[in-house]
Design a binder for these strands. Structure first.
Length: 499
RNA sequence: GGGGGUAUAGCUCAGCGGUAGAGCAGUGGCCUUUUAAGCCAUUGGUCCUAGGUUCAAUCCCUAGUGCCCCCA
């Protein structure tokens, strides 16, 4: 029973005794009691009803939920129960339910799952309540709940025992309701545009589609290593080759990197691909999506994240990587931002470690990440990324050093990444070869060469634009959550020590 | 990887070099419209772990571990 050999908490022992008594009477875990109403519904429908109305036309309801408060006052008692929609107060009188049932109720504990049948009425203070005729304990709760006023505030417990956090903290429940609404909204938005939702492999033979370190696992029957995907990109584009001209996937990707307020090893990403479009189409699409999302969720397009205002109603600022760097680093010579030796010097002055094999594009992005990213508070599209760090993006027609790519930043963090897709199989072959060289130099984030993907491109990928959005980060912004763990139901933590 | 914070009752938190306290929750009692109900009584602790200093450590020192924050 108890997993440790420590003596059990007295509070639990007390409740276990009560459960044993229920068991002895044959009433331990009944499952024949049904419900006809939810707390939230009752408030919505009857909050304006007067007692006269209830007396003229009695409303009988069957309700059930977790008992969150209990106030016993002699021969009358109040309790509030909580269901998925909210809370409703129960009112019991000993003379109404009988002495035996009433005494039984007095022995119930906060956290017990209970059922009641009764009629609606309004108390002296005007609170809509159920006058109970009959009650039943459905599930005995053995673990005591956190304190009713402060709830559960210890971060570690909130994450490790999310179920307790959800029971007692309405604000936590709300975050995950909003999260669900966000994903729902995105689905219906894309479905309305005739996108097809698909699912592609999470276990991949080659971990492609992003520059990131993968998790490795082993498949016994195939006798080979498999990788948890770092991105679904290459499979989704195969589907565009196959003729699904608008596809998206919302699901987990995995990156074997550090954990922080912005990073969880598994995270949820939306990736979508749209044929016969370029990155500017996606920038407009994303801007519209975010604007309508905010409006649908909150009825407004201005929101506040951690004290700073985010406006979704006005067009996002657009700036190139090189322009943004020049703004934040006025001492740099803008004419030499593609000059390897110059960039190496600049990195040295900025305390950025320089890898031996890094080219100018890589160094430019290092400088961007170090000096610009955090400053981008207002929604900003950064464009014109170096081809060197974008091995799957289409080269810009007027400047082959660059690709047709953008990233969206706000509140100092990256939220989305999109580009016109590289659909030239011969250029893609060359880019993969460059990645392999980087890998040989020890860059374990470099992409592997994917022969089958090249073959797919050789069948012909229409001109296509693709976009990835970090759903967790989006939820953080829209729920004003400071840490990614606040928007993940079960964030990864180090295992607890067992002693 | 580096720096800072934190770890005391089931929960939220005080506290002090002399083995510990409040509120809530629990237990017993009073109370028939309460709502952070109230009143009386009362139970409950490996003070994160391991060493060290000391007559004496929950407190001071060292190391470790979890969690939070910042930096790389």
């Amino acid at each position: 029973m108890a997993e440790s050999n420590r003596p059990e908490n007295k509070l639990v022992a007390e409740r276990r005794k009560k459960l044993a008594a229920l068991r002895a009477d044959g009433f331990a875990f009944p499952n024949t009691f049904r419900r006809t109403a939810l707390a939230g519904q009752l408030h919505r429908v009857y909050d304006e009803h007067s007692n006269e109305a209830f007396e003229a036309e009695p409303v009988e309801v069957l309700v059930a939920g977790r008992m969150m408060t209990q106030r016993v006052m002699g021969k009358a008692s109040f309790a509030t129960i909580q269901d998925r929609s909210g809370q409703i107060q129960l009112f019991l009188q000993r003379d109404q339910v009988g002495k035996e049932a009433y005494d039984g109720f007095k022995g119930w504990d906060l956290g017990d799952i209970v059922w009641a049948r009764g009629t609606l009425f309004r108390t002296r203070t005007g609170e809509l309540s159920v006058k109970v005729c009959e009650m039943q304990l459905l599930t005995k709760s053995l673990q005591p709940l956190p304190e009713k006023f402060h709830g559960l505030s210890d971060q570690e417990s909130k994450y490790r025992q999310r179920y307790v956090d959800l029971i007692v903290n309405e604000s936590s429940r709300e975050v995950f309701r909003v999260r669900s609404k966000i994903v729902q909204f995105i689905r219906s938005y894309l479905d309305a545009m005739d996108f097809l939702e698909v699912e592609t492999p999470m276990m991949q033979i080659l971990p492609g589609g992003a520059l990131a370190r993968p998790f490795v696992t082993y498949h016994n029957a195939l006798e080979r290593d498999l990788y948890l995907r770092v991105a679904p990109e290459l499979y989704l584009k195969r589907l565009v080759v196959g003729g699904f001209e608008r596809v998206y996937e919302i699901n987990r990707s995995f990156r074997n990197e550090g954990i922080s307020t912005q990073h969880n090893p598994e995270f949820t990403m939306l990736e979508l691909y749209l044929a016969y479009a370029d990155q500017t189409v996606l920038m407009d699409l994303l801007e519209n999506l975010l604007r309508s999302l905010a409006e649908s969720l909150f009825g407004r397009t201005e929101l506040v994240y951690q004290g700073q205002e985010l406006k979704f109603d006005e067009p996002f600022r657009r700036v190139t990587v090189e322009e943004a760097i020049a703004e934040q680093n006025p001492e740099l010579d803008t004419g030499r931002l593609r000059d390897l030796d110059y960039l190496r010097d600049a990195c040295g002055r900025l305390d950025i470690p320089v890898q031996e094999n890094a080219g100018p594009g890589k160094l430019l992005i290092e400088i961007f990440e170090k000096t610009v990213e955090r400053q981008l508070d207002k929604p900003t599209y950064v464009t014109a990324y170096p081809a060197e760090v974008s091995p799957l993006a289409r080269r810009s027609s007027d400047d082959p050093w660059l690709v047709d790519r953008f990233e969206l930043f706000m509140a100092g963090r990256e939220l989305a990444n999109g580009f016109a897709e590289l659909n030239d199989p011969e250029d893609q072959d060359e880019r993969f070869r460059q990645q392999m060289e980087q890998k040989d130099f020890g860059d374990d984030e470099a992409m592997p060469y994917d022969t089958d993907y090249i073959r797919a491109l050789e069948y012909g990928l229409p001109p296509t634009a693709g976009l990835g959005i970090g759903i967790d980060r989006l939820v953080m912004l829209l729920t004003d959550s400071p840490s990614i763990r606040d928007v993940l139901l079960f964030p990864h933590l180090r295992p607890q020590r067992e002693d």
